[in-house]
């Protein structure tokens, strides 16, 4: 793959009840977005452990998306808040590791926001493209 046609690989951790449903709705509504995302379903965004994100980067992800229910909407009451704090912290840590914190993105996507989900992926793909391949992605 040459640099000019760099297609980023993004791993997305999606909560079952809102964001995964939002991704499904994008499909049902046939809203097109770039084929850059590989989704990993978890029941609650609060399940997402920083180690999953670090491992995704180590395994060559150019970007990692974590998406959960909007604040107040968490199917499990408050898992999304725990995730939000971990991501806030992890972004700082990534920066210290010299990895652009923008490669990690937290989004709240509800079950009815298929359009927004697609917009997020489009936007994230663009942004990660601009950043270029992850410096950890040496396998290409």
């Amino acid at each position: 793959m040459t640099k000019s046609e760099f297609e980023p690989k993004i791993v997305g951790f999606l909560c079952n009840w809102c964001s995964y449903a939002g991704a499904d709705l994008a499909g049902v509504s046939r809203i097109q977005y770039p084929p850059t995302l590989r989704i990993v379903r978890v029941m609650c965004s609060g399940r997402v452990d920083p180690v999953f994100i670090l491992e995704a980067f180590r395994s060559g992800a150019d970007g990692v998306l974590v998406a959960g229910c909007h604040p107040g909407d968490c199917h499990y009451l408050s898992g999304n808040y725990k995730l939000q704090r971990r991501v806030s912290m992890l972004k700082k840590v990534l920066e210290q590791f010299g990895l652009e914190p923008e490669r990690l993105r937290l989004e709240w996507v509800s079950a009815s926001e298929g359009d927004r989900f697609a917009t997020v992926i489009k936007d994230m793909t663009e942004k990660v493209k601009k950043l270029g391949p992850s410096p950890l992605n040496n396998g290409g």
Partner: peptide, 26 residues
Amino acid sequence: EQGAAMMSALLSILGVSGEKELEYDA
């Protein structure tokens, strides 16, 4: 790894009581 384990644990409990409040800021 130890770093991620502690980070996750600490940020899970830090602010847990106030997370539904308006002033909450992760």
